[in-house]
Design a protein around this nucleic acid. Structure first.
Length: 435
RNA sequence: GUGGAUAUGGCCUAGUUGGUUAGGGCGCCAGAUUGUGGCUCUGGAGGUCGAGAGUUCGAAUCUCUCUAUCCACCCCA
């Protein structure tokens, strides 16, 4: 049996790779206008980072992390031994924790200094059952801003994200921006407790999942799709009523900035993110296009003012979001947006017979050294099929090299679009192709 | 983790109640006179019908097991 790719992974083929780079480049360009600079952190971190940062009770940490382990340590574990905590490693299930760790470790957000604004792009890993828009290895582009607690940072980030979608070509009419505030450590615990006890009161009428959620993460009950549960949760205590004054004020200001920027949004008091570190502002971008599948969230994020302390022991407010690459791609394709860019071949060198192949080879090399994308036949094809190949490669020009041309140190340069063909000296070839 | 579906040459697929050399389309390769592409025409190569076992005179087709993929739940981007 041939070996296949692991479950839930995708090969980015050349055509996919071109688009992926376009996607990342577009993000870098847009985010760069807002002061975000690229960073790359390890694909794996100490497991402890994710456990503390994302939260032990979350599904992501509780059951979806891939453990990375060396062969020796695996043996030790299988033999019933223990390994040091720094050897307990996990593939990153999301990007925020690692970036925040790096910021803390390198002092990129010194106290009182300007906020650190960083962006990342790369693969994330979650051991879920794959389906449309959900892979075990998937790609995210995201940003993190550490060190500023002003609501303008939240608004700026959300606006920036919407600008990115605009630039990549997603139709605004198919997207909706949901926002909410989850409160902070001053008001969320009490609110959380009130929801928990509300669920407990109605537990007998709710699904098993929600009863389980009551203790683990009661706010997630708002997301339940069971009709009975959503009816009950409709009357549950709402976050906006429970926010403390400073959270309320922060939320109002974020909305005011968005209003001023003309960004349309939907306030959704039931929007809760599944990662524990979120505080105050949370948001999510959903798309609604035929063929999208059931994974409609293409981006999401929010404020996480407590994460830095959890990771490094030092206080620093944070804000960030992540964009799901694969889901965006599905959305773009569903919206009929052309996403693949064409391969570029400037010149194809066609050799009429074997006597000119050596000269053709050298000529191709010289043109490449001068910066042209050049292809040449390596299968001893006939001249006719070399032309077919050139056509398939999308070559703009073909240089025909036969005994006649070679004798004069020339090629017959054909423009594939206009069909015009004229003799060009070897030395003039590069400039003639560029013309 | 739970549930449903699917698995036929590089890709998409036909295959009726099990019955001769598994059919088609795309793609690929080669030709259509002398050194030239995209269209058309002609010809050609390429398949142990996901793997293994079973039923049968006979299995792509029926049964079982396994594997993989897709879709949905859950959860998240």
């Amino acid at each position: 049996m041939a070996i296949q790719k692991p479950e839930g992974t995708e090969d980015l083929l050349p055509v996919d790779e071109r688009f992926y780079r376009h996607f990342v480049d577009t993000a870098a360009r847009v985010f760069g206008r807002y002061g975000y600079e690229p960073i790359e952190t390890p694909l794996f971190e100490q497991t402890e980072l994710f456990v503390r940062g994302i939260g032990e009770s979350t599904d992501v940490v509780g059951k979806e992390m891939f453990t990375a382990i060396s062969g020796n340590n695996l043996k030790t574990l299988l033999d019933g031994g223990k390994i040091r905590s720094k050897s307990r490693l996990s593939l990153r299930p999301e990007g925020t924790a690692g970036v925040v760790r790096a910021i803390a470790q390198h002092g990129l957000a010194p106290q009182g200094g300007a906020p650190a604004k960083l962006m990342y792009a790369g693969p994330m890993f979650r051991a879920e059952r794959p389906q449309k828009g959900r892979l075990r290895e998937f790609h995210q582009v995201g940003v993190e801003c550490i060190g500023a607690d002003a609501p303008s940072i939240d608004a700026e980030g959300i606006i920036m994200l919407m600008r990115f979608y605009e630039e990549i070509g997603l139709p605004r009419e198919n997207m909706r921006l949901l926002i909410n505030s989850m409160g902070d450590e001053a008001c969320r615990p009490a609110y959380r407790e009130s929801v928990r006890s509300y669920i407990m009161e109605h537990a007998s009428d709710m699904c098993e999942d929600c009863q389980r959620r009551a203790d683990i993460n009661p706010l997630r009950a708002f997301d339940c799709k069971e009709e009975g549960c959503s009816a009950i949760m409709a009357n549950a205590p709402k976050i906006p009523d429970a926010l403390c004054d400073s959270c309320k004020s922060h939320y109002e200001q974020v909305k005011a900035y968005l209003d001023a920027a003309g960004i349309e949004y939907i306030e959704d008091p039931t929007l809760v993110r599944g990662l524990d570190y979120y505080t105050r502002t949370v948001f999510e971008i959903q798309v609604d296009i035929e063929g999208m599948g059931s994974q409609s969230a293409i981006g999401g994020g929010g404020r996480y003012d407590g994460l830095m302390k959890e990771v490094s022991g030092k206080e620093a407010p944070g804000f960030g979001f992540a964009i799901g690459y694969e889901r965006c791609k599905i959305a773009l394709e569903a919206a009929g947006v052309e996403v693949a860019s064409q391969k570029q071949t400037d010149l194809f060198i066609a050799c009429v017979d074997d006597s000119t192949r050596a000269a053709g080879f050298m000529l191709a090399q010289q043109c490449r050294d001068a910066g042209l994308a050049v292809e040449i036949d390596h299968q001893n094809r006939s001249l006719k099929s070399q032309f077919k190949l050139a056509d398939k490669l999308g070559a703009a020009k073909v240089a025909v090299l036969g005994p006649d041309e070679a004798a004069n140190r020339q090629v017959s340069l054909r423009d594939m679009a206009t069909h015009e063909q004229q003799p060009v000296a070897f030395d003039e070839l590069v400039s003639a192709v560029r013309a």
